[in-house]
Design a protein around this nucleic acid. Structure first.
Length: 103
DNA sequence: GCAATGACTGGTA
DNA sequence: TTACCAGCCATTG
């Protein structure tokens, strides 16, 4: 399974009204770091709910803040001003449907 | 094969 | 609260 595919699958599994940080996804796929996740999103993000992926401080991706905020509001994601309230919105990946490279 | 590039992070000021 | 900085690592040229 490609790194890209892992990241995209992870993003797709974030439920509406929730969000998570790049670092969370990076840890989940168990490979690379937040920046690698960002690279994947920059290339293939348009195929997944990218607005549910935000920075660790709760701010959406660079240059897409307005777009992301609008979508997040529409989904009822907990926001605190112009940032996602990760304290409440953070999605804890308890999933069992995703394969990891090495447990 | 090496150097540059990021939709980033966490610490410190 | 924001600003700056060193570290990060798969992908790209």
């Amino acid at each position: 399974m490609d790194y890209v595919e892992q990241v995209l699958t992870a993003v797709e599994s974030i439920p509406p009204g929730r969000a998570c940080a790049y670092s969370d996804l990076a840890e989940l796929v168990g490979r690379g770091g937040p920046r690698q996740v960002g690279q994947v999103m920059a290339r293939y993000g348009d195929a997944v709910p990218w607005w549910r992926v935000v920075r660790a401080d709760g701010r959406p991706a660079r240059g897409l803040e307005e777009e992301a905020l609008a979508r997040l509001r529409a989904e009822g994601t907990p926001l605190r001003g112009d940032r996602v309230d990760l304290g409440r919105a953070r999605f804890t990946f308890l999933w069992k449907g995703i394969e990891r490279d090495s447990p």
